[in-house]
Write a protein that binds this DNA or RNA. Structure first.
Length: 425
RNA sequence: GGAGAAAUACCCAAGUCCGGCUGAAGGGAUCGGUCUUGAAAACCGACAGGGCGUGUGAGCGCCGCGGGGGUUCGAAUCCCUCUUUCUCCGCCA
């Protein structure tokens, strides 16, 4: 949610900033609604003040055994005078709210405008791996090495799913455990969250109302619940409607969860195997900070995510997203994209974002500053990392001429000492 | 799933039967002070926050006793509804 005062004071600025991400708005109607709202509030409150005063007198009169006929006459006169105004006010408040909930976050000043094409690669780790043999893609490798079973997954679930089998399951779990240990070392709090969330959580995170068709809803649940599309949705909601102590900031959390996404219509031909599915695993980091600290926190999350990639020894690039490619709730996003040799494409395995006060405003997540004043926190999140996309990258980047895969050194302890994935008989 | 009980401020807790002098007793925590070499204890003092409207401002007003609605001149208190927590029973990993 954007700051209403900011819109009221400088609608042109907001309009221009949103245009950078390709979002067109006109605030004229909105400003009129706000003005109308304030007018109504003034009128209603005046009448209420008078009524309160008179009602209080009734009590006093009764105690003193005075006649209250006069008072009741007066109350009767004003009683229904603002009924219509109250109805209008409620309607206007709803309209205002709906409008605000549909506005995306303002992109940071330094972002380029435009869509994906304007993303900028800001750094690269290692050279593209070169192979002097014909490489296999991760589907071939996973199948021949017995790591993934796509067919039986289709049988028991449907398309867009897979089963991690044997060493495949172990490798996926090794990644998760490795990441968890790294975050614990850095002092982040480990939370395992519910996967079924309520509507308010989706609204605060910024998924709803705009993207409520992108998640899986549970039938027959009342109030309705959806499957979390990322642990961020849960983590960013745990302090909803709270005022945090300054001493409690920054808060640094991480969680592992499967991520459930409908990905309606976004399936692309090169996205075979486990590049895009209805369910994938991810470790997610979230920070709550003061506004002053959020830029540092962003860097910290970035470094943490990149460090994991470096320790795995993968070739990747970091992209600074253009305003139009930054998601609805975020002011800035850097993606870490891993190289997939078979399709010669970099695919996102981590997305580090600063929402600034956008989510905090939606969820009334606040803190008390040095002067004792209440202000919104900043929320940030970063994948650390999406394992289900990492596994294909590891298979492809670390494959050998024999069709085996070298296990990244940092994962070997988590694999029970297994250094190479070879074909099982 | 069934049957009960509850939700009051940072925490505990009174008030709810019998609606008005209750924006809410009391205690703890916290903060400030006295005392002390320092600390503890004791004592004294402060301590309802938050949202919204209005005003340059001190302030004033509206809404706030889990959320939403209703009854009433007036609701923490009465009614409806939702959510959550606890206890018991059933079922189950």
């Amino acid at each position: 949610m954007l700051d209403i005062e900011m819109i009221m004071h400088d609608p042109e600025y907001v309009k221009k900033a949103l245009l950078k991400r390709g979002f067109e708005v006109d605030f004229k109607g909105f400003i009129e609604l706000r003005e109308k709202r304030n007018e109504l509030i003034k009128r209603i409150e005046e009448v209420r003040a008078l009524r309160n005063k008179l009602s209080k007198s009734v009590g006093e009169y009764k105690r003193e055994k005075k006649d209250t006929t006069e008072l009741f006459l007066e109350i009767e006169k004003i009683k229904n005078s603002v009924d219509q105004d109250e109805v209008s006010l409620e309607k206007i408040e709803n309209e205002i709210n709906e409008f605000l909930l549909k506005l995306p976050n303002l992109p940071d000043e330094d972002l380029l405008s435009g869509e994906k094409e304007n993303n900028v690669v800001v750094s690269v780790n290692k050279d593209q791996p070169e192979f002097d043999f014909e490489i296999k893609d991760h589907v071939e490798l996973a199948t021949s090495l017995g790591l993934i079973d796509y067919e039986r997954a289709a049988k028991i679930s449907g398309r867009g799913t897979w089963i991690y089998t044997n060493l495949g399951a172990r490798l996926e779990w090794a990644l998760l455990n490795f990441f968890i240990d790294e975050h614990l070392k850095d002092g982040y709090e480990f939370l395992l969250v519910p996967h079924l969330l309520n509507y308010e959580s989706g609204q605060t995170a910024g998924q709803f109302p705009k993207f409520k068709d992108d998640v899986f809803w549970l039938e027959g649940e009342s109030p309705r619940k959806f499957l979390l599309p990322t642990a961020e949705t849960a983590l960013v909601n745990i302090h909803r409607n709270e005022i945090l102590d300054l001493k409690a900031l920054p808060r640094k959390y991480f969680s592992y969860s499967p991520c459930y996404r409908r990905e309606a219509g976004s399936y692309r031909s090169e996205e075979r195997g486990m590049i895009r599915g209805y369910q994938f695993n991810k470790v997610e980091m979230v920070q709550y900070t003061t506004p002053d600290d959020s830029d540092d926190a962003f860097l910290e999350l970035m470094v943490k995510a990149e460090t994991l990639m470096k320790k795995l020894g993968l070739h990747y690039q970091v992209s600074k997203l253009a305003a139009g490619d930054v998601s609805f709730a975020m002011a800035r996003t850097f993606d870490i994209e891993v190289w997939l040799p078979s399709i010669k494409i970099y695919k996102e395995v981590s997305s580090v974002s600063n929402s600034r006060s956008f989510q905090a405003r939606r969820g009334m997540i606040r803190y008390r500053n040095e002067e004792g004043k209440v202000d919104y926190v900043h929320t940030l999140n970063g994948s650390g990392l999406a394992t289900s996309r990492l596994l294909p990258a590891i298979l492809e980047q670390f494959q050998t001429v024999e069709g085996n895969v070298i296990v990244p050194e940092v994962l070997v302890p988590y694999m029970g000492g297994i250094k190479v994935l070879t074909k099982v008989k």
